[in-house]
């Protein structure tokens, strides 16, 4: 017998017919990616977990409205984006933090875990829009057009946010470049 991995559109079709197990499998495939995206966006594990839960519940309820099952990932991240920004809007006064140590002030000879923390801090210095553009492109691998759909904005806006973010990260992460290279070798 030849085992073939069930594709997402097949699972979506089954879930639409009320097959809960099919939806559970979809959740298990996507939960880690959605959680990590939300974690970097809202910067709090408990909030990221709560929002992830909400995202998958809303996705299940809205599944009949998904026009093209082949575009499930973009659709799911659009729900995640809406939920995350809804949370960020509610707690805006707390999210505007100043006075954190700048990544450029950190010692350039960092251990892998410290490097990861430095990247996390550098991402934290970006605006929420810029950070989200980096998360969707660099960590989730979406194309510009897909990002524009998720963020409901023109491709030019997506590029502008992402390019500005990369310029800022290029400067703040410059001291860490050598460490990143050493880690690869």
């Amino acid at each position: 017998m030849i085992f073939r991995e069930v594709e997402d559109p097949d699972l979506i079709a089954k879930a639409r017919r009320g097959n809960v197990e099919a939806y559970n499998l979809l959740v298990s495939r996507w939960e880690k990616r959605v959680f990590n995206y939300l974690l970097r966006l809202v910067s709090n594990r408990e909030d990221a977990l709560d929002v992830s839960q909400e995202v998958f519940l809303k996705a299940y309820q809205s599944l009949p409205k998904l026009d093209d099952p082949a575009r499930f990932s973009g659709w799911l991240f659009r729900i995640a984006h809406n939920e995350a920004f809804s949370l960020l809007r509610r707690r805006r006064p707390e999210t505007e933090l100043d006075g954190e140590p700048r990544p450029a002030d950190l010692n350039p000879r960092l251990l892998p875990m410290e490097l990861s923390l430095a990247v996390e801090t550098a991402l934290g210095r970006l605006s929420a829009d810029q950070r989200e553009a980096v998360l969707l492109k660099v960590y989730q691998g979406f194309k510009f057009e897909e990002m524009a759909e998720i963020l409901e904005c023109p491709v030019s806006t997506v590029k502008s946010r992402l390019y500005t973010a990369l310029d800022l990260l290029k400067v703040t992460l410059a001291p860490m470049h050598k460490t990143a290279l050493r880690g690869e070798s």
Binding site: S52, F56, L115, V138, M176
Partner: peptide, 29 residues
Amino acid sequence: ATLRLTLDTLSTLREEEIPRRIAFVSDKV
């Protein structure tokens, strides 16, 4: 080269494990 280094450095960010499975409300299993 600088842009690639920046992307390489960004790629060192560790992916976090989800603390607990997403619970689905009608998930009897």
